[in-house]
Amino acid sequence: MLAAAKSLGIDRIGVTSAEPFPELRERLVLHRALGYESGFEEPDLDKRTQPSLSFEAPRSIVAIAVAYPSKLKNPPVSEPGARRGILSRSAWGEDYHRVLGRRLERLAEWLAERAPELRWLSMVDTGALSDRAVAERAGIGWSGKNCMIMNDELGSWMYLGEMITNLPLPPDAPLLDQCGDCTICIDACPTGALVGPGQLNAQKCISYLTQSKGLLDEDAMVKMGNRLYGCDTCQIVCPINRGIDSRHQPETLPDPDVAKPLLRPLLQMGNREFKETFGASSAAWRGRKPIQRNALIGLGNFRDEASAGDVARVLREDPRFELRATAAWALGRIRGDVAQAALAEAAEADADERVREAASRALAALAEPAPKRGGVRD
Rank of each mutant, 00 (worst) to 15 (best):
P22H: 08
P22K: 09
E23Q: 12
R25Y: 10
G39D: 08
R48F: 10
L53Q: 14
L53F: 12
Y68I: 05
V77E: 04
S78Q: 02
R83T: 10
I86R: 12
S90G: 07
L100N: 05
E105T: 12
E109K: 09
L111T: 06
E113C: 08
A115Q: 11
L121A: 14
A128I: 13
A133T: 10
R137T: 14
R137C: 14
Y159L: 07
L169G: 07
P170I: 15
D172F: 11
L176N: 12
C179L: 15
G180A: 14
I184D: 13
Q203R: 13
L215K: 05
E218H: 11
T233W: 00
C234N: 03
V237Q: 00
C238G: 00
H248V: 05
L267C: 14
Q268C: 14
G270H: 06
N271H: 08
F278E: 04
A284R: 08
N294T: 14
G298M: 05
G300Y: 04
R303Q: 13
E305T: 11
S307T: 07
A308R: 00
D310I: 03
D310F: 09
L315G: 02
P319R: 14
R324C: 02
D337W: 10
A342N: 04
A358W: 00
A364C: 06
E368D: 13
E368N: 11
P371L: 02
K372A: 12
G374E: 01
